[in-house]
Amino acid sequence: MDDIAVLIPCYNEDKTIEKVVSDFKRVLPDAVIYVYDNNSTDDTEKLAKKAGAIVRHEYQQGKGNVVRRMFQEIDAHCYILVDGDDTYPAESAAKMVKLVQEHNADMVVGDRLSSTYFEENKRPFHNIGNCLVRGMVSKLFHGSIRDIMTGYRAFSYRFVKTFPILSCRFEIETEMSIHAIDKRMQVENVIVPYRDRPEGSVSKLNTFLDGWSVIKTLIRLFRIYNPFAFFGIISIMLFLISLVMFVPVLITYIETGLVPRYPTLIVSGFLSVAAIQLAGIGISLQNMLHKNRQDFELELYHAEIQERTEKD
């Protein structure tokens, strides 16, 4: 088992990968540097090997697939995950590693948004999107993570080996953040300087497509991690619509003794039944979620035992 593993997912990053690997070898000389190439068509693999990295491959396209492969294959006491585009400084890694090794942090978040991100990043819609996602996570999940979508993080062994990765693309960062919040993992924020990509290096993000994917992921995770609130909100909305439709019919009946709008009454009744059913579904799923959280605590316990066994 490695002491520190630096994980760099890459797709066509030959303009920057050699510098990124060299910087981390300088800052963390005892770390093992892994570059996972995701079907690059340029010289990423050759330059990563030249700089001293161990190069492996993931042939399913998408960052989520790459991270999934990394977490499955590599065992380490501390992991650093960083993009290969040279937008994050290697100098911050030592502090992030220390928080994992000495302060029992499960995930350390490299917080760009509190430093130079909004000055350096030249894509205004990315800035808006990051703020939107941070606000949604804060409201929906009550988390204190200051940069939800950063690609610079450190992890403990137990986080990596108990994190079920479902996302295939760039939603992976959002999934990591919400998993850590929901499972009460110890999360630390470290402010890191951010620099925009150097000239000639091209972002693989599609602002609107990937932004919409992240929002869909947030909604999906809200349904999974807080089903009572998710289905409860829909239930209340349906009940209110039903009530709005029912009240005029009730008033007419009180005044005349007649029910002239049977279709309205029937639709109102169906909506009320649907609202009750959704509330019941939310309660049932919330109970199942509580059991899953109990099982997850046992998974953490077994992961810690496994790590201690590897150390001995």
Rank of each mutant, 00 (worst) to 15 (best):
V273A: 14
K183E: 13
P260E: 05
Y194P: 00
P263Y: 01
L238S: 13
R261K: 09
N206G: 11
S284P: 00
G282M: 01
N189K: 08
D196V: 03
S235Y: 00
T174G: 02
P227T: 09
G200H: 04
Q186G: 02
M176H: 11
P263C: 04
E175T: 07
S235G: 10
T264Q: 12
T252I: 14
S242G: 15
T252Y: 10
T217I: 00
S272Q: 12
I281F: 12
I181H: 10
P248V: 02
V273P: 02
L271R: 10
C168T: 13
F231V: 03
T174K: 00
I283G: 00
V190I: 11
V247F: 08
S177N: 10
I276R: 08
K183A: 11
F239A: 15
V267Q: 04
L243E: 07
I236P: 00
K204N: 07
V244M: 11
P193I: 04
G269K: 07
E255A: 14
M176L: 12
I234Q: 03
V190D: 08
G257F: 01
I178T: 10
G280L: 08
Q186Y: 07
V267E: 04
H179R: 04
G282V: 03
T252M: 09
S235Q: 02
F231T: 06
T256G: 04
Y262C: 01
I283M: 07
I178F: 05
E199M: 05
G269I: 02
R195N: 12
P260D: 02
I281H: 07
G269E: 06
L278G: 07
A180N: 09
S284H: 12
P263G: 08
E175R: 05
L218V: 13
K216R: 15
V273R: 07
G282S: 09
